[in-house]
Nucleic acid binder design. Structure first.
Lengths: 217, 217
DNA sequence: CTGGAGGTAGACCGGTCTGTATACGCTTCC
DNA sequence: GGAAGCGTATACAGACCGGTCTACCTCCAG
């Protein structure tokens, strides 16, 4: 970061434009004119549009991760509370003006079926998210940590795209509600002495062999 | 549907191509050559590419909804079981070759920040999904039906994008696991006679006034 | 003073995009 | 027979795309 003022301007402008309108919908000329930089300068710092996209996504993701983890940790002191605080922070984010979902998820959708340097950035960001939740789940000492962390991660992704699509009125609140149930049920304190064989079916592996024809979608 | 054989071919080819490679990444010429139709014929049936995109998405969504509801209803006979069966059907779908997420979600991401006739198709499809789950939740007589149905809907969306991104090993199984917990806790049979004041905090409204700075993303 | 590094401005190239226009079959039904 | 309807083939228009090139400006260090 901050290799040069011009490069920085390009990076931030590009990230903002790609996020707001989409990677394919924003041309290099648009980035150039919006960041008040000559086209040659852009191509001196970034060898191609693809490289610029990856760099912008990475920069944006780095900033977001710092903001997100700090916000979650500032809101709640203990791991179980922080798991719920995730969804409060998300709710706040959803109401931010200019919210258009997760930038890496958007990139993953836009770049599907192609090879692109941004894919590594997407995987890194999503892996970090899953790791963040996994760490909190482990710290909270929840039962079945893998399955629980996966579920919380999916709930978070669902809340993000739910907020983006706009069908659900309060996606963060609904997700928080479900997360609360999950945390409570998986917490050690919840396990009552009665009904010892409760945690038997370990999830994850069940699948029923019912056959149904596929559909192209 | 079936206005003419040529029109049908265009519609299905377009849906398949847009789904696999993205709306912006597929040009009209590609659709034309892939569907073995003259360009003029395409533009005789669809006044613009936007209209074609919307029609193809609609057609694809109609087929998917029919397949999905039939599959869920074939797998399980009762509403609570069907709620869980949703995630089994999803798991089967995720492993289909050529799976690239939900077509309407992809379109919503690709068309963000624009006005496009496909938006109505997206809203209709997502609304149907939410309604499908809401119907099952009501039929199962679960507590806090709105919040529960929202959470299950978000879990489903999360599983879909989770399967698309590929960080989670078994997104459908993890989501099913969480859905099982949710259904059990919200089911009437679960409510124990002790602790009468349990269902007091009605979720949905909680929000804490913690301030934290925003981030552009 | 001088020279190089970094930035600017704008023309330019080949390719692709959506959408249209023209000219030509083939079938079907009066 | 012939005209209408439908589809084909192909060329074209005008815009935009990513990317390159040249020429010029400005600042700062040696």
């Amino acid at each position: 970061m901050c290799a040069s003022p011009a490069s920085d301007r390009v990076l931030h402008t590009a990230a903002s434009l790609f996020y707001k309108r989409g990677i394919h919908a924003v041309g290099v000329d648009t980035v150039v004119s919006a960041s008040a930089v000559a086209k040659m300068t852009l191509y001196k710092h970034f060898p191609s549009k693809d490289a610029l996209v990856a760099a912008a996504l990475d920069e944006q993701g780095t900033q977001w991760r710092a903001w997100f983890s700090a916000a979650v940790e500032a809101v709640a002191p203990t791991a179980p509370e922080r798991i719920l605080a995730i969804f409060d922070v998300l709710g706040h984010w959803f109401e931010t003006e200019g919210f258009h979902g997760d930038a890496t998820l958007n990139a993953a959708v836009e770049l599907r079926g192609t090879e692109h340097p941004a894919w590594e950035v997407v995987r890194a960001h999503q892996g970090w998210l899953r790791g963040f939740i996994g760490g909190l789940v482990a710290e909270a000492g929840l039962d079945e940590p893998e399955c629980t962390a996966d579920a919380l991660y999916l709930l978070m992704e669902g809340a993000i795209v739910g907020a983006q699509v706009g069908i659900t009125a309060h996606p963060a609140a609904a997700a928080r509600c479900a997360a609360g149930v999950l945390v409570e049920v998986r917490s050690v304190a919840h396990r009552p002495p009665r009904e010892a064989g409760h945690g038997k079916a370990r999830g994850q592996g069940q699948r029923q062999g019912q056959e149904q024809e596929e559909v192209g979608q």
